[in-house]
Design a protein around this nucleic acid. Structure first.
Length: 654
DNA sequence: GCGGATT
């Protein structure tokens, strides 16, 4: 019942946002131009009552940061964690970073944002995947929490813990990412007295509430649904009447349609920024231009810092992660090509280990698939293959239809594994830090360029190497070229199974045979769901008739079916007109939907409003340096630049 | 029939 209420509100909020936005934006533009002159003197903390000692402490931090940024070029920003006390960061916090977590030098994003965030500024930050964004926002947030607690009551550590006085909230788009951020926050807060709690769906709410009431809560890490649930429930015992900071991790994702409306609902439950000044931090590896406009609703246009450690003409992928595309003759070649590739890499990793190459790591891969049914299909096939070959690495799967307990278990097991393969939906595409992933494989086209970037960001983290492979059918190549411009993707043609023509009677590569055998053992449900799921919106941008033709080839030549799995008349009607080759059944004997370890379904959750697919190219190209009315306009422009440069005229590299 | 996100 809560759900329908929220959805109704969310829909109303969407409409309201759409109606209000243009006018509001222009008024913000106008006022920020007028107010920009007084920017230097206006600080959100200036109007907040505070004990003099703490103010002095705060201002020393603020002026240190002001000195660092105003004299940019002459004085170096801080680059070592041990120098943080100069900015007013407490010794206990620095100790847990340097001794507890073992960090010494800051990454660029840490060095460039911690100052501003400590000074209470809003921050919009873009930095490559795996470069320490989490610690970059947690460090100043935790220090500011310490300042506030101290400022209110120097005996705060002895006070009864309270879950009704949350100081900061971090919001994440997925549960596992929230858990991961929370784990890092807890390590950071070790020994500081700052209490971290986690609020995500799929877990026992009562237990979480009990824990929060017992231990208190200063910093809450949450996913949007559960956060809304807790804040809207006056009985929960969770409240944030004096919230000082809100962090959106994966900010561009959080501000997309769908999440944006939910976020809107959440902020309505928080104290208004005019009454309780609130710092907002937006961090991501990708910041598309259309999101920057929405970001304006969350940040203070007069007092924020926009930090990009990715040059505007550069893509947010790592040079040290080579990217390849493996064009496959047809759909039936893709799974065999993946298997052949995995087997080759397993051998290569073994060889490298023999040569005692210090850089050599055991094969550890994440394979991203476009649908849940495809994850189940690949998991089934590879588990089957491992059944006959115990030297094959362990197989894990990850998608939202698993119970949360299984999700957590699989995620942890893969994190701790030396060598393993994780088949995953995009639930693990962003933010997840699985150590020592050597390969990211993507099967079929990613929904958009940013998802491609986030997925390959699961490897090449923390200065380590990695490789990225994209397996697509030939019918997807043209869409791939349009969708993935400006990326250094090279063609990989060394995989025999990718190119073999099943119909010409030639001998099939071993991997092809293996997949064929494993498919023949698969439950019909797994195959049928795989078939129909690829006809959904997941391959949007590719000609539907070609998809049907290729799927039918696969059912015949790889799955050994006489006729393709049946689809409903209704489904056929939802496709473009004139599609042929589908096996249409009558409505009356539709088989029950759903397979595997599922969470109970709760009604239809339409995805129609998500607005997937390619984002438009916009903006202008100037060779002249240009001036900006305010930093916000500059940020919009900088974020837009990348789109301009990698525009439709970019030369395909594959 | 199409990532994810509270019961």
């Amino acid at each position: 019942m809560m759900k329908t209420g929220l959805l109704r509100h969310a829909a109303a909020a969407r409409l309201a946002v759409a109606a209000v936005r243009p006018a509001q934006l222009s008024s913000i533009r106008a006022s920020s131009a007028v107010l920009s002159a007084s920017r230097a003197s206006s600080s959100p903390l200036a109007c907040r009552p505070a004990a003099p000692a703490v103010l002095a402490r705060f201002y020393s931090a603020a002026s240190a940061s002001a000195a660092a940024s105003s004299s940019a070029g002459s004085s170096e920003p801080i680059t070592r964690f041990t120098d943080l006390p100069k900015l007013g960061v407490s010794d206990s916090l620095v100790r847990s970073i340097t001794q507890g977590m073992g960090y010494e030098n800051m990454t660029p994003i840490q060095s460039m944002t911690i100052n501003a965030a400590l000074a209470g500024k809003d921050v919009v930050a873009q930095a490559k995947t795996g470069t320490g964004k989490t610690l970059a926002f947690l460090t100043p947030i935790v220090q500011r929490i310490l300042n506030r607690l101290q400022e209110e009551d120097s005996n705060w550590r002895r006070r009864r813990p309270d879950a009704r006085d949350i100081q900061a909230i971090v919001v994440s788009p997925t549960r596992e990412l929230a858990e991961q951020i929370s784990a890092e926050a807890k390590r950071l807060c070790q020994g500081t007295g700052v209490v971290v709690q986690t609020a995500v769906g799929g877990t026992m709410k009562r237990m979480m509430l009990h824990k929060a009431r017992r231990e208190g809560c200063h910093l809450l890490v949450a996913t949007p649904g559960r956060l809304y649930d807790l804040l809207s429930d006056p009985e929960s015992g969770i409240a944030a009447p004096r919230l000082a900071a809100l962090v959106l991790d994966e900010a561009d994702r959080m501000l997309e349609v769908g999440f944006a409306a939910e976020l809107e609902q959440i902020t309505e439950l928080l104290p208004s920024r005019s009454e309780v000044p609130r710092q907002t931090l937006l961090y991501s590896a990708t910041l598309p231009k259309d999101v920057v406009g929405i970001a304006r609703r969350y940040i203070d246009p007069k007092n924020f810092e926009f930090v990009q450690t990715v040059r505007a003409d550069e893509t947010p992928t790592h040079e040290r992660v080579p990217q390849y595309i493996v064009p496959c003759r047809g759909f039936q070649n893709i799974a065999p090509a993946v298997l052949e590739f995995v087997r080759n890499e397993l051998v290569a990793a073994k060889e490298a280990a023999k040569e005692e190459n210090p850089e050599a790591l055991p094969f550890k891969a994440v394979v991203f698939l476009p649908t849940t049914a495809a994850v189940l299909f690949y998991t089934y096939l590879f588990q089957r293959i491992r059944f006959h070959d115990r030297r094959f690495p362990r197989i894990y799967d990850m998608h939202s239809k698993l119970t949360q307990a299984t999700r957590t278990k699989n995620s942890e097991a893969f994190r701790n594994a030396q060598s393993a393969i994780l088949f995953s939906s995009d639930v693990a595409a962003r933010g997840m830090d699985f150590p020592n992933v050597t390969h990211v494989l993507q099967v079929h086209l990613p929904q958009d360029r940013d998802i491609y970037i986030h997925r390959i960001g699961r490897t090449g983290r923390a200065g380590k190497g990695g490789q990225a492979y994209l397996f697509v059918s030939n019918i997807e190549i043209n869409t791939a070229r349009r969708r993935l411009p400006g990326l250094p993707i090279q063609r990989c043609t060394s995989i025999e199974s990718a190119e073999v023509d099943v119909s010409d009677g030639a001998a099939l590569p071993p991997a092809f045979q293996e997949i064929r055998e494993a498919s023949s053992m698969a439950p019909h449900e797994v195959l049928k769901n795989m078939y129909t799921s690829l006809l959904g919106n997941s391959l949007k941008g590719v000609d539907v008739q070609s998809i049907v033709d290729e799927l039918n080839e696969m059912t015949k030549h790889q799955w050994g079916m006489d006729e393709p799995p049946a689809v409903s008349r209704r489904f056929l009607d939802s496709l473009p007109r004139g599609i042929s080759g589908l096996n249409v059944m009558s409505e009356s004997h539709r088989s029950p939907r759903g397979v595997g370890d599922r969470r109970g379904g709760f009604g239809d959750r339409g995805f129609g409003d998500r607005g997937f697919g390619d984002r438009g190219f916009g903006g202008r190209r100037d060779s002249q340096p240009r001036r900006f009315k305010d930093d916000f306009e500059r940020m919009e422009y900088m974020a837009g630049q990348k789109k301009d440069r990698r525009g439709p005229r970019a030369q395909p590299t594959f």
